[in-house]
Amino acid sequence: MANKDAFGSYHPVINFLYFGILLAFSMLSMQPVCLVVSVACAIVYYIMLKGAKAIKLLLRGMLPVFLLTVIINPAFSHEGSTILCYLPTGNPLTLESIIYGIFAGMMMVSILLWFACFSEIVTSDKFVYLFGRIIPALSLILSMTLRFVPRFKEQFDVVRDVQKTLGRDTSTGPMLKRIRNAITCFSIVITWSLENAIETADSMKSRGYGSKHRTAYSIYRWEERDKGVLAFLLFCGLFLLAGGLSNNLFWRYFPTVRGVLTKPITLALELTFSLLCALPIYLDRRESKQWNSLTSKI
């Protein structure tokens, strides 16, 4: 296949705008239909992006987060008008707090997954391309910060191996000694990372990063197809914003679960949000279909 992910091959502005709208909406809306759609699409898209590795993360990372929220919420929040039973503390266990816990868990999972997709699609080169001109210092810091943990881990492995050859083994020996050796390694990597950060900054500066007349090569072109997606994104964003502000996506969990669900305008908003969530999945599917039909003709 030519490109693993078709949506990622669109212009960075489109990628960034898409996740911006989606994350903002997912964080602000607690409408159950939107949450379910959001979680479902995020799971499907994440699996499409990462393959089998994604399922491991879903089961080991997301499922516990979800279950924890579902259990913790009714244990600490006792508001709600439907009392199911009483907890040992004497406070009531309410249906509303359980329902809220389920949807709060879904919201958390959907946002975490969309951020995971975001870091897959909007890579640091795209980020610097987008913001290198407007906010050079901040975008450099952001891209360095985002890369910090994986780089730190890599460097730690290297340092540990070197220290092992010097006799400072962190995997065998008495506990106290191992800890001491690990701390030595850690201190070395910290020093390295500080120095590395300064070096990176200096090196970027000496290459004229952030200066007015510097040009940069970029592989991103604004194409015809980007226009169509941009129009769609703007439409969805404005429509959802208007719908949210006009209370047509109103939903409350306490003290009774109440909200609009089946009004025509609400259905239209829910449909729009579903289309927005499913956009990258649809684009990828279309691309791979096209590719398959083209290769089959050869």
Partner: peptide
């Protein structure tokens, strides 16, 4: 899931 939600929400359309 959508069916379950719409079943649960019977009476939710009641105006607050």
């Amino acid at each position: 899931i959508l069916c379950v939600i719409s079943l649960c929400s019977c009476g939710i359309d009641e105006v607050p």
